[in-house]
């Protein structure tokens, strides 16, 4: 069965995409979790669905539609958060429901255009194209550079925003850069794992790794290990049992959380 993944090109592409996502999602996800922005990933993924609908409506490439809308949505949310006029979690609810409703209405009025919305809600890892792989590889490269160079500043931002400002960190600039990065990761993943599941892949492995109560860096590395384990196990099991791959991957990451939680109850 394992040889199938190297024999059939579409399976090899899916496996590579999964491995790339297994690094990308938890690395960005850890900074979302520690800053209590866990739901941001879910909101961005719903906002990018609106971008998918817009791309279909205007006959544009799906990725660029998703990317444009999630970046605009992310910046809009950051602008509202900074204004202090709407509570943070309410901003997420506003964008999440608003963008989903707009996407559904837009798709309904797109006469003659057929789109399999389910594939964007749940993803379709087995239809990964070479373009998808190139986009994911580029995103991973940019993410690694950004985290590598800005690690201490991002860590300090997660610890305390005021402390970061007084330490000379350009807090607003880093917040915007991080939103752009998270938006790009969500947009790049939506066709593969889907709007409903990318949030889980970004957050659950991090929560699992946090149960082991290690340092920030070790937690980051552990979350990648757990995400990769979930991706590989999810792939093979879903292929073998003919199950939806995205959902199976998320279920394995939940098992990873459960094992980590139960294994560390005494800590």
């Amino acid at each position: 069965m394992i040889t199938d993944f190297f024999q059939y090109e579409f399976l090899t592409r899916a496996l590579i995409a999964g491995v790339l996502l297994g690094i990308l999602a938890p690395v960005v996800g850890q900074f979302l979790v520690v800053r209590r922005f866990s739901l941001l990933a879910d909101t961005l993924s719903h906002v990018s669905l609106l971008g998918v609908a817009l791309a279909v409506f205007f006959k544009l490439p799906i990725f660029f539609g998703a990317l444009g809308s999630s970046i605009l949505g992310g910046l809009g949310m950051e602008f509202l958060r900074r204004s202090g006029k709407v509570m943070s979690e309410s901003i997420l609810a506003l964008f999440l429901s608003g963008s989903l409703a707009s996407a559904l209405v837009l798709l309904a009025i797109s006469d003659g255009v057929s789109i399999n919305l389910l594939s964007y809600l749940f993803g379709s890892i087995t239809t990964v194209t070479n373009t998808d792989l190139m986009i994911l590889s580029l995103l991973l490269f940019v993410t690694c550079i950004f985290i590598f160079l800005g690690y201490r500043k991002l860590f300090l931002l997660a610890l305390d925003e005021d402390l970061a400002r007084v330490s000379g960190v350009s807090v607003d600039k880093y917040n915007v850069l991080f939103i752009l990065l998270a938006s790009a990761v969500v947009a790049g993943s939506i066709t593969i794992v889907g709007a409903l599941l990318i949030g889980a892949l970004m957050i659950v492995p991090v929560l699992a790794a946090m149960q082991w109560r290690r340092s920030f860096l070790t937690t980051l590395l552990l979350s990648i290990v757990i995400a990769e384990g979930s991706v590989l196990a999810g792939f093979f099991v879903s292929y073998r049992l003919d199950l939806p791959s995205g959902a199976t991957i998320v279920l394995f990451s939940l098992i990873g959380f459960l094992v980590s939680y139960l294994g560390n109850r005494k800590n």
Partner: peptide
């Protein structure tokens, strides 16, 4: 929050 005392203190070196 996953951070050790070492990481917090070292964050003073920007």
């Amino acid at each position: 929050f996953p951070a050790t005392v070492r990481e917090v203190v070292e964050s003073g070196h920007m």
